Simulated assay, not measured.
Amino acid sequence: MRTTFDPTPFWRSTVGFDRLFDLMNESSRWSGEVAYPHYNIEKAGEDHYRISLALAGFKPEEITITTEHNGLTVEGSKAERAASDQTEYLYQGISARPFRRVFSLADYVQVKSATFEDGLLKIDLVREVPEAMKPRRIAINGNVSKPTIDQKKAA
């Protein structure tokens, strides 16, 4: 069974999609990824998106959001418990382990805001394509000759 994507046929007719093919190839290796923390990715409009992460038990100061070119990283780690906290758990279902979740962002997608409420971290994103990158119509200039004075007199 083939486990990687082979973009070779597409390279014959595409230019500049190397990054896309690399992402597709990389995604096939994510099958064993740990599913913590749980998250949703929502499309809130034509160019608006939201990532919601379930972070029960975490405080906003224990979470770090970092964005860099085409990437968004959310990390969290709980503060060390005080030595005086001698809680003995019979069952601990609320995870407090450190995590690191990385999201790949498309070109021109930017983080607009982040809120933490009721155990959910919500990150709002928007795609803002610069005017110079938007499609535009190109006029076709033909080789049209203007009539000369002699041609005008003859007509």
Rank of each mutant, 00 (worst) to 15 (best):
M1T: 08
R2V: 02
R2D: 05
W11T: 06
R12F: 03
S13A: 04
S13H: 07
T14L: 03
V15C: 00
F17A: 11
R19H: 08
F21W: 12
D22M: 04
D22L: 08
L23F: 05
S27F: 04
S27R: 06
S31G: 11
P37D: 00
H38M: 06
Y39P: 01
K43A: 14
A44T: 15
G45T: 07
R50Y: 05
S52F: 02
S52A: 15
L53H: 07
A54R: 09
A56W: 07
K59R: 15
P60Q: 06
P60I: 01
P60Y: 05
E61F: 13
E61I: 09
T66N: 07
E68S: 15
N70Q: 15
L72T: 06
T73Y: 10
E75T: 12
G76N: 04
R81M: 13
A82Q: 12
A83M: 09
S84I: 10
T87I: 15
T87C: 07
T87A: 14
Y89I: 09
L90Y: 03
Q92D: 15
G93K: 04
S95A: 15
S95E: 10
P98I: 00
F99A: 04
R101C: 03
F103G: 07
S104Y: 07
S104K: 08
S104V: 08
A106H: 07
A106I: 01
Q110L: 09
K112E: 14
S113N: 12
A114H: 14
T115K: 13
F116Q: 06
E117S: 14
E117T: 15
E117V: 12
L120V: 13
L120A: 11
L120K: 12
L121P: 01
L125Q: 06
L125T: 03
E128Y: 02
E128K: 12
K134F: 02
P135R: 02
P135V: 06
P135E: 09
R136E: 05
R136I: 01
R137P: 01
R137Y: 11
A139F: 07
A139G: 03
I140R: 10
N141D: 12
V144K: 06
T148P: 05
K152P: 00
